[in-house]
Amino acid sequence: MQGLESAWHSLHTIDELAFKKSIIHQLPSVIKLGVTLVFLVSVVTFPAEDIAGLMMMWVYPVLMISLADLPWLFLLRQMMVMAPFALMIAIWNPWMNQEPGLILGSLMVTQGWISFASIMLKFGLTVLSGLILIATTGMEGVCTALLRLKVPQVFVTQLLLLHRYIMVLMDEAGRVVRAYQLRAISGEGIQYRAWGSLLGQFLLRTMDRADRVYLAMRLRGFDGEIRLLRAERFSSASVLFLVGWCVFFLLARFCNIPYLLGEWLTGGWR
């Protein structure tokens, strides 16, 4: 029950963050979505051994979180929720590939460990960039941007309603579980014998609710297309934001910035 409630609060908090008024929040949603997409493509196409290059990409989330005044710890906690999935994929690499990859003094790092680090870094960057997008744009902003980018209506409608109704469904689930726990004698979670009936209850309730919501939509003229009331203007600053980040991502992806920076700095000191 507590897990359910904390997930519910997290969802609400992310939604509320989107109502802040920072300079990042005020940028057009299409621009933010565009930057996020270019960032994601850049990150996932990094070669596994280029850890230094991937580290450069952390500039983006760090700057965005600071400029948008987002809570660091909260976002990191949300990121960690997904960590076990990435860990499940990456954990086998050190055993599968024990070829030497890097020698640091007397320490030999295998290629498996390097690719493990690369997967975990990519996981952190991609999840964090998604969280930053939602926390600075809101789900309706993301959906507006998707519509502008000509993503099919069906997909956008599903996304918007799914996000909205996750909250209501969690309410329903909370009620079902609370009703069970108030009458459960042991108080130690939900007994496996009750899972079937609880899930059945939950399914029936959610189907009823879906029917009522759909009816409310039909009565207000819903014809399969969600229309959002959003007017966003592109300023020269927002275009600069898009171009600036894209140039940085491409540079980070195709040039070895840490190496160049180090060379320039050491050259400068000489």
Partner: peptide, 16 residues
């Protein structure tokens, strides 16, 4: 809750 399904109040009132 059955009637209010859009992300913001303004969007919901504008839906119809």
């Amino acid at each position: 809750d059955d009637q209010l399904f859009m992300p913001t109040v303004g969007d919901d009132v504008a839906f119809g």
